[in-house]
């Protein structure tokens, strides 16, 4: 089991949890497990072709998977996975 840190905007869809456990040996398997259990988050994470959306970054142990092997990046049992969609919120419209 790996721990996936959910961004605030997806927490409601996973029952309010900040972190959820998921199983799988790669990022793709982890996300498949999650989207299988919580279908509402699928459109946030993956595009129609099953690739990671271009406005979402996934970090395994604080490294961006897109710069490694993408969804095929391997995940160990102690890995921490952080899912981060782009956030615009800041201060003021300008």
């Amino acid at each position: 089991m790996s721990t996936v840190r959910m961004p605030p905007i997806l927490r409601q869809a996973v029952g309010g949890a900040r972190e959820v456990d998921a199983s799988g040996g790669t990022v793709r398997e982890i996300l498949d497990d999650l989207t299988g259990r919580f279908p509402a988050i699928r459109s946030h994470l993956l595009d129609d072709g099953g690739d990671l959306n271009r406005f979402v970054n996934v970090y395994v142990n604080n490294e961006d998977v897109r710069l490694g092997r993408g969804l095929d990046t391997t995940v160990g049992p102690d890995s921490t996975i952080i899912v981060l969609p782009a956030m615009a919120g800041g201060g003021s419209p300008a």
Binding site: I9, S43, R54, F55, N57, P85, A86, A88, G89
Partner: peptide
């Protein structure tokens, strides 16, 4: 480099909607 594209608006609530 970090976010090549912005999310569609329905997937990106602002602080006005989500609070801070």
């Amino acid at each position: 480099c970090q976010y090549p594209e912005p999310p569609p608006p329905e997937l990106a609530p602002s602080c006005a909607e989500g609070g801070v």
